[in-house]
Design a binder for these strands. Structure first.
Lengths: 189, 189
DNA sequence: GTCTATAATAGGATAGAC
DNA sequence: GTCTATCCTATTATAGAC
């Protein structure tokens, strides 16, 4: 039995996942500590307990979380032993889920706009794009593609995904996103 | 001769062009009236003289300006009598200049992230994307393409431009942007 | 680890002189 | 049309109790 009675402690990772969603949807600047307090149910002081550096600290934690998540869920599976088309297909399914079928913004795009976000956080989200292109490119090369062609097609795929996200949300038409994923998949095979 | 001596009056359009650059680079939320005051050299009260509704008013003015600019510089020229490849080429040159070779963010993407921007401003920038796809599509149809194919390829071109903007800035490599424009051009012809 | 209370600052907005 | 001065609220951040 616990010595003291307190509201259920929230783990840092649980908070970070909430922050991830807040930041990608609202952008770093528009999200206030009050918003974060509401979304997490934690008081401001509790937030500073978890993130002594305040919002910049939170942004870095979110960027690190996103990078680790992408590595685990998207980049590492691209290295598996299954056939290339299965791996690309799995990646596109993960992409679709992550962006909620085209309705949810990308953290990378949201964070890159913010001039007040910590340089470390921005550097991390930018690195995710480079990692992503590299991961797809490596899969294509392992399947026999030339280095230059692999890189070119991998870059085009990430461009199509990011662009479709912007255009689908602007047009309010998630079909644009799903169609773009299909086309991108074909171009990779 | 003027009756009173005052600092040179800035026209509303001059202010709007400065606001356009501030908003697309920093995002609506991160740009404060102090920032705007610095960039324009005008005091806050002068800004409220030009935009009685404050920041939301400014965002709407910028969105309207962008829409008019796009219509004049990109959509109308697509209707001209010159050969299709010349028109597409001209559009891509305008795109490259507008986004400064891939280094400058898109106002549309910046504004869409902002949850606090006026719904009217957001509706306007979203409409620009629809207009853009429609303008390219109309040019392709006038050149003999089927309606569905024209729409599909026009959408893909705008996706490629918007995606390349995100990826090129994330990777810090403007060549990604220029290469993507070349590829997009080929796909339209 | 979470809370309440409070400080300090920055933000948007207005009044009134020139 | 622009300025200075001011107001109010929101925001970040801290102190200290539990």
């Amino acid at each position: 039995m616990m010595a003291t009675l307190q509201k259920s402690a929230m783990t840092r990772e649980e908070i970070v996942m909430i922050l991830f969603d807040l930041f990608r949807r609202g952008g770093y600047d528009a999200v206030s500590l009050a918003d974060i307090s509401d979304a997490t149910g934690l008081g401001k002081s509790s937030l500073y307990h978890h993130f002594p550096g305040g919002k910049p600290d939170m942004a870095e934690a979110v960027a690190d979380f996103a990078r680790g998540w992408m590595r685990e869920k998207m980049f590492d599976p691209l290295k598996s032993a299954s056939p290339l088309d299965k791996r690309i297909d799995a990646m596109m399914k993960t992409v679709s889920a992550m962006y909620e079928g085209g309705g949810a913004p990308c953290l990378i795009a949201s964070m890159m706009i913010s001039p007040t976000a910590s340089p470390k956080a921005i550097a991390t989200v930018r690195a995710i794009i480079a990692d992503w292109i590299a991961a797809i490119g490596a899969a294509l090369r392992a399947d026999g593609a030339g280095a230059a062609d692999a890189r070119r097609r991998a870059t085009a795929a990430v461009i199509a995904i990011q662009g479709a996200l912007v255009v689908a949300r602007a047009a309010g038409d998630e079909k644009i996103f799903s169609e773009a994923l299909k086309t991108a998949k074909s171009s990779l095979l």
